[in-house]
C-alpha cells in the first residue's frame, strides 16, 4: 500500500491566474476505500479551487466526523482546516465566518454528520445564511461503522446485510430549500463536469450554498438492491448540465436562444445552465421543491443547480458586523473603552 504520493508531476500542468498548478491544491494521499465517491468529490473541490484561482491559504476547510469528514485531509494541504466534533461543524463554521469574513469556507459533511447527529445544528446554519459552501458526501450508509443504513437512505434500499430500509429517508436538499438556503444544488460524485462548476458557483455565491452529492460507498453500498450504487445512480440520473464563467472571463460560448439561462452572482461571475428547455427556473423556491418531489416520485435523481437567490444577504451583513476580519482590528477597535460604553448605555436610557 502506498501512503505517499510521488512528488513528480506532469511537466506541462496548466497554471491558473495565481501561477499555481492543480498540484499546489493537493492534500495527503487518501486513506478511504479505493473507489470511494468521496475521493472524487475531494478532487472536484481541489479542481474547483484551482480553476477559480483561490489562494490555498485563503481557504478554510471545516468538517465533523465520518468518512466524509476525513476528506479535508485529502485536498488542499496548504489551507486552514478544522475537524470538529460530530455534527458540530455548523457552529464552528458560523463562528469562523463571523470572525473572518474574507476566507472561503468549505464545509464537508456526510449524511450522518448532517442528517442524524448534526441535523439540529444544520438547520440553524441554513436559516442563518452563513456565507459558506456546505458539501454533503451522501452515500446513504455509515461506512465508518461497517455500513448501517443512514438517515438519508431511501425507503426500501437493501443494506449490505440484506435487510431493506423501513424508513423514509431525509431529503436534505429539500430540507435546505425549506429552511431558506440561498443556493441549493445536487450532484453526483461521478459527474465532475457538473460538480466542479457547481462548487465554483457555490464558492462565488455570498450566502449559504448547499450541495448534496450522491457519493457511492464502494465497500458497503455498491451492491444490487442499493439505490445509491454507481450503476443505480447512473441509471436514474437526470442531470442538468451547467458551466461556471468567472467574472474576469468573457462568455465565449454562444448558446442557441431558449436553450440556456444565465445567473449572475455577486462578484459578477455567471452560472450558465444548459438544459432549461423544461422551463426550469432557478429563482423559484417552490418550483424547486416541486421538481425535487416530482423527480423522487418518478425515481429520478435530479441533479444540477436547483435554486439560487443571487441577491441574498449573508449573516455578516444581516447582523451588520465589522467589515474587516477580527484579526485585523487593533486593540482600540476591539476594546473601544469606557467612553464608547457610556455612549451606548446612554443610547439605551
Amino acid at each position: 500500500m502506498s501512503y505517499i504520493k510521488p512528488k513528480f508531476r506532469h511537466p506541462r500542468l496548466p497554471i491558473n491566474t495565481l501561477g499555481y498548478t492543480v498540484a499546489d491544491y493537493d492534500g495527503a494521499i487518501s486513506t478511504l476505500c479505493a473507489g470511494c465517491g468521496h475521493d472524487s468529490i475531494s478532487a472536484a473541490i481541489r479542481n474547483a479551487c484551482f480553476l477559480s484561482s483561490i489562494p490555498p491559504h485563503r481557504i478554510a476547510k471545516l468538517s465533523g466526523i465520518g468518512c466524509s469528514s476525513k476528506m479535508p485531509t485529502y485536498f488542499m494541504g496548504r489551507s486552514h482546516g478544522f475537524n470538529s466534533v460530530h455534527g458540530r461543524m455548523p457552529s464552528v463554521a458560523t463562528g469562523a465566518s463571523l470572525a473572518n469574513r474574507e476566507l472561503t469556507y468549505i464545509g464537508v459533511s456526510g449524511d450522518g454528520d448532517t442528517a442524524s447527529i448534526g441535523i439540529g445544528q444544520f438547520v440553524h446554519l441554513v436559516r442563518r445564511n452563513v456565507n459558506m459552501t456546505y458539501i454533503v458526501a451522501n452515500n446513504g450508509c455509515y461506512g465508518l461503522t461497517k455500513g448501517q443504513v443512514s438517515a438519508t437512505a431511501d425507503l426500501g434500499t437493501v443494506s449490505k446485510y440484506g435487510t431493506a430500509n423501513q424508513f423514509e429517508g431525509i431529503d436534505i436538499a429539500s430540507l435546505a430549500l425549506l429552511q431558506g438556503a440561498s443556493l441549493v444544488a445536487r450532484s453526483f460524485s461521478g459527474d465532475k463536469e457538473q460538480l466542479e462548476p457547481l462548487i465554483r458557483g457555490a464558492m462565488a455565491h455570498k450566502g449559504f450554498a448547499f450541495i448534496d452529492v450522491v457519493s457511492p460507498c464502494v465497500t458497503f453500498n455498491n451492491h444490487a438492491g442499493s439505490t445509491r450504487s454507481y450503476t443505480e445512480t447512473r441509471e436514474h440520473l437526470d442531470a442538468m448540465p451547467l458551466d461556471f464563467v468567472p467574472m474576469r472571463e468573457e462568455i465565449r460560448t454562444h448558446y442557441a436562444a431558449g436553450t440556456g439561462q444565465n445567473v449572475t452572482l455577486h462578484d459578477g461571475s455567471v452560472i450558465h445552465l444548459h438544459k432549461t428547455g423544461t422551463d426550469y427556473r432557478t429563482n423559484d423556491r417552490v418550483a424547486a421543491l416541486n421538481a425535487l418531489q416530482a423527480a423522487q416520485e418518478e425515481d429520478r435523481i435530479l441533479t444540477g443547480l436547483l435554486f439560487l437567490d443571487p441577491n441574498s444577504q449573508d449573516l455578516n451583513r444581516n447582523l451588520n458586523l465589522a467589515t474587516r476580519p477580527l484579526n485585523e482590528l487593533g486593540k482600540n477597535e476591539l476594546c473601544p473603552g469606557s467612553r464608547v460604553l457610556n455612549s451606548i448605555n446612554e443610547g439605551l436610557r
Binding site: 513528480f8 494521499i29 479505493a34 473507489g35 472524487s40 461521478g190 465532475k192
Partner: peptide
C-alpha cells in the same frame, strides 16, 4: 470499470 474516477484523481502525473 465502474468509472468512479479514482485513477484519474490519484494519478500523480495526470495521465
Amino acid at each position: 470499470c465502474i468509472e468512479c474516477d479514482a485513477c484519474t484523481d490519484i494519478c500523480p502525473t495526470s495521465c
